[in-house]
Design a protein around this nucleic acid. Sequence first.
DNA 1: TTGCCCATTGACCGTGCGGTCAAGAAACCC
DNA 2: GGGTTTCTTGACCGCACGGTCAATGGGCAA
Lengths: 212, 212
Amino acid sequence: MAPDDRKLTSRGQERRDELIQFAVTRFAEQGYHPTSVAEIVDGVGVGKGVFYWYFSSKEDLLREILSDGLLQIRRHQQAAIRDEPNPLHRIEKGVRASLEWLSDHTEVMLLFDFAWTEKTFAADLHKGLEISLEDTARHLREAMRAGLIPSGDAKTIAIAIRGTTEEVARVSAAGFGEVNVDAVVDMVMGGVLGPERGRDRLTVPRRTDPER
Amino acid sequence: MAPDDRKLTSRGQERRDELIQFAVTRFAEQGYHPTSVAEIVDGVGVGKGVFYWYFSSKEDLLREILSDGLLQIRRHQQAAIRDEPNPLHRIEKGVRASLEWLSDHTEVMLLFDFAWTEKTFAADLHKGLEISLEDTARHLREAMRAGLIPSGDAKTIAIAIRGTTEEVARVSAAGFGEVNVDAVVDMVMGGVLGPERGRDRLTVPRRTDPER
DNA sequence: TTGCCCATTGACCGTGCGGTCAAGAAACCC
DNA sequence: GGGTTTCTTGACCGCACGGTCAATGGGCAA
């Protein structure tokens, strides 16, 4: 019988969770590949067969961790921006929610990063990325239409926001100090506003007619 | 004899480079662990011993790729901002240079990302990250002192800039369209300027005296 | 032509891995 | 208690991996 659609008792559920929890920790600590199934079951203190009772493979386990994490962070964001009519406030609250979740789940974040580096797993993340970017871009376009911020490349700005958020969480998780959430929000909100108010002072003069 | 301090003829150098080049491609394509040494030497069309003539281990090879990449990107940045007196223009040019290099070396970028997820390799990147952030933060603080931008958390802003730059390169490398460099620069420069000019309009009101 | 040394070969090795399975032990239901 | 299903055990398997090494090639200097 496939472990996927197996009926689990509450005891079974707990074992399963225990395995996931331990695996996440180890995967994040030393990496996915260097962590063997034997290590996981030893750590939990069970026989090897237990692992394959709950998961059809090591790969399957990681996949589950990833899709679970994806779901969780999205839910967390959605809950945070619900009922917020101002699109810019939605973006701010989304950033804060992401930082919150990522700070509370640094191991899973590391596993996302790993997953992007391996073809088999990266595929699982592609759609999630697309959706997440499109979400943010939609808020941005709405803010542009409302005249709250200048018009611009919503897609690129969305990518920048995501990059900022994740890098802050990453760097902080790597032990470079606590997150200054307000500073992050200031950076992001300043970014969406753009440099127009003082472009001459801020940026290198741009060619309007590029040489090539 | 250790492969490290071995004298290489020009033919030897070429072989070595050939191996590195092929390995980088494969590592980026399918991941470091799933790529076997056998696969690399087969791909290049040589016997297995050749690999261990030039590298002391597979791990050693990746380490070399990483430190090489680190050196290259830093050089590229430094060359771009040399002789630029305006600290904000240094930041802009640095961002453009990074995007340039990352776009030209997407495989290496992916390997950086992987390296962060595995303890053994992450250590190699820690110092580089620290230096890179401190560099940017220094420009920022100089700009603050000169009154070009409002005072703020230079470290956090530096992290945000790095995150933006790398995410844009990553997402574009993952096949989500071309990079809009000017839009990235606008976002970054707007970010360093901060949202002060319209905070009430832009951000959710902040508690000056937080509840907890 | 002889020697030398960089470069190459590929069969071989030991190990540790992911995964299997026949045999039970618990828990639960009637 | 008997019967059924969930859960657990750990020895075992096949294999592919990273790495070794004795033998050989080949370019070049003298």
